[in-house]
């Protein structure tokens, strides 16, 4: 059976308007900010499996990973590398659970994909059918662990994750690109093998651009292209968007 020519095929007999719309549809990709936001939310699942049985996490590990995901999700909305951040300039950079609730879907992800109204999943028809979304532990309204108390009585800052540190860097971009750049360097020191190295570089390159260090930004972008040839960010960086 021959497949029909696709609407967007130049030799199809589809009206020009339809060809134009469907061609545009194939070029509709998320922006750099949207990708970075998603990547920072997904940071925990980018972590390599801790054991020799990849992706077969223990129950405790699943809970920990999903909990981390939920926390990460709550932190990162509307990532914006444009000139105008979505956060008020006088707002604190440090996210706390009370500032931004996690998305509803993160608090209560759906039952297993394909589940019926009773919540029972039918037998999968294929490999692709054997999917289910996990039960997600709703985040506590309080921090997961109480901050340690320093000898001088000041509360120590809980260990900050790679995603949280980079989120601070991202937030600083609009108002203080020098600080954003410094935070990416801090991230490089603390997480030399971090799974969000691409996001770190994207933020650093943007910070350099904003600081007027365009030559450095270009060099770093070229290095990025060499190190991450398959990166989802490549297209955006290649355009040299100011």
């Amino acid at each position: 059976m021959n497949e029909p020519k696709r609407f967007r095929d130049a030799t199809s007999d589809a009206p020009d308007e339809l060809r134009r719309l469907f061609q545009a549809g194939t070029e509709d990709v998320p922006g750099e900010a949207e990708l970075a936001s998603l990547a920072l939310r997904l940071g925990p699942v980018f972590e390599p499996p801790p054991s020799s049985t990849p992706l077969k996490l223990s129950t405790a590990a699943k809970v920990a990973a999903v909990s981390a995901l939920v926390v990460g999700s709550a932190v990162l909305f509307a990532l914006n590398f444009g000139p105008h951040g979505t956060r008020p300039p006088d707002a604190p950079e440090r996210w706390t659970p009370s500032e931004t609730p996690p998305p509803a879907s993160a608090q209560a992800l759906p039952p297993a994909a394909g589940a019926d109204a009773t919540g029972k999943s039918p037998a999968p028809e294929s490999g692709a059918g054997a999917v289910s979304t996990p039960s997600v532990v709703a985040p506590s309204s309080a921090p997961s662990s109480a901050p340690a108390v320093r000898p001088n009585g000041a509360a120590a800052r809980p260990a900050e994750s790679e995603a949280e540190l980079l989120e601070r860097a991202r937030r600083a971009l609009a108002s203080n690109p020098a600080r954003a750049l410094a935070l990416t360097e801090q991230d490089r020191t603390r997480f030399p093998a971090g799974v969000l190295a691409q996001e770190r570089e994207v933020i650093a390159i943007e910070a350099l651009k904003r600081l007027g260090r365009s030559d450095e930004a270009a060099r770093r972008a070229a290095d990025f292209a060499r190190r991450y040839p398959g990166s989802a960010y490549r297209k955006k960086l290649d355009t040299g968007r100011p």
Partner: peptide
């Protein structure tokens, strides 16, 4: 974005 995240959580598992 939430749904893409759901997909990757499933993929991870």
């Amino acid at each position: 974005e939430d749904l893409v995240q759901e997909v990757f959580v499933v993929v991870h598992r």
